[in-house]
Amino acid sequence: MISVRNLRKSFNGREVLKDVSFDVWPGEMLALIGPSGCGKSTTLKLITGLLEPDDGEIVLNSKEIGLVFQGSALLNSLTVRENLALALRERKLPKREQDRIIMEDLTLVGLADYVDSFPTQLSGGQQKRTSFARAIVNDPKIVLYDEPTTGLDPVMSTIIEDYMIELENQLHAAGIVVTHQFSTWTRTAHRAILMHDGVIVWEGKPDDAMRSSNPYIVQFAKATKDGPMLTGTI
């Protein structure tokens, strides 16, 4: 599980996260939504330890974390196989066992034929799926997705969302998905948190978003420019 308490983080004197607390349970997917620049990626980086919080506490029940980066972040100098092998490195598996896991993992995302391709030879959607495969190759108990469907066409978005749902059932991990794509968080998440100006302004089930009277989630879900979230800050 993931437990985040009173998280604070500033960059160059500007407070990006002011006071953020939430829990994610095993088998649960939490959507972190909010306008660009509200600190969603920063929250994920704090959870993975890539950044240190200024204040607050993060408790994780596992050090095995899978992170699907916004831009895939595959190592361009390595093939798909080598990218996955790097993630498996610490397990020091025999080569055949390692190859078996890699092929199984790639088959899951439909990319077994691309095992010896370089990332630059893949399409955006294929890179995203490879990044997926890399994130889950060690069966992590915590999986984080940073805008997994942003920049993909609607069909590829649906495919990625389906993978997320399938993985969720398989891994029984605690998951966080950062997104502002409506279909992604309504389809994949059990619960959503809306962030604005460094704090959580709404929390609830995706189904409740449209019915809520909370002005923030109404504005966000309906994507209107009238509401408490000023476009100037977005």
Binding site: L50, I65, F69, G71
Partner: peptide
């Protein structure tokens, strides 16, 4: 973010 990926 390739370096971040390495660190993870």
């Amino acid at each position: 973010e390739q370096i971040d990926a390495l660190e993870i």
